[in-house]
Amino acid sequence: MTDTEMIRTENLHKSFQIEGKPPLHVLKGVTEHINKGEVVSIIGPSGGGKSTFLRCLNLLETPEEGQIFFEGVEITSAKVDINLHRQKMGMVFQHFNVFPHLSVKENITIAPTMVKKIDPKQADEKAMELLNRVGLADKANEHPSRLSGGQKQRLAIVRALAMEPDVMLFDEPTSALDPEMVGEVLEVIKGLVKTGMTSVIVTHEMGFAREVSNRVLFMDGGVIAESGKPDEVFQNPQNPRTKEFLSKVLY
């Protein structure tokens, strides 16, 4: 490992067993690395393995084959306590997954106080600071059912940030949002990226991917079909499949 490396995957394979059907081979040998401070967007058609790849990075999906190294540690090894490493990998989901039975503030403080045993008062202060940052401070004591989709996703982002992760994983963070709320969530992610947060973003927002990323990965058929600087990939794609995909989504 070089000291600039954050995540490295070696030959990841993942298939899903569905009863009565042949197994669905979703990842077919993905070897990739993500450096510290890098912002990597993953684009590609549905079913191409983008989300599965991202979910493998913090082992929400367990790959059948291959290895994942995070900050130099092989987290796919059976000896590793994955809970420790997940603390340093924030994740934001397509469907927000905020905790409906907790207040907005408790959503943020529960993991730091429970997992990292941070003093509740300190966690509270930190939570308010984060809520301020995304303009939700006045909602601190409400329940998430009172929030709009965009507000829920902003909450989900700061909930992950409260653990002070080294990398953030975004799984289609704006796909479930009403169009008018996409902007506010992308703004928050943009602001975060500017602070130098290493980020991996699975997205269908091509303009956004092009604007914020250092590198774009095009995934199709369970492999990374193309990888490069955003301008290169978007303006001059080398792989015919990338060309075809981009011609369909950039109209």
Binding site: N83, R86, G90, F99, I110, A111, M114, V115, R159, A160
Partner: peptide, 10 residues
């Protein structure tokens, strides 16, 4: 819900 909690290290 479970995934979100586990992703936070719980």
């Amino acid at each position: 819900q479970t995934e979100a909690a586990r992703s936070l290290g719980m």
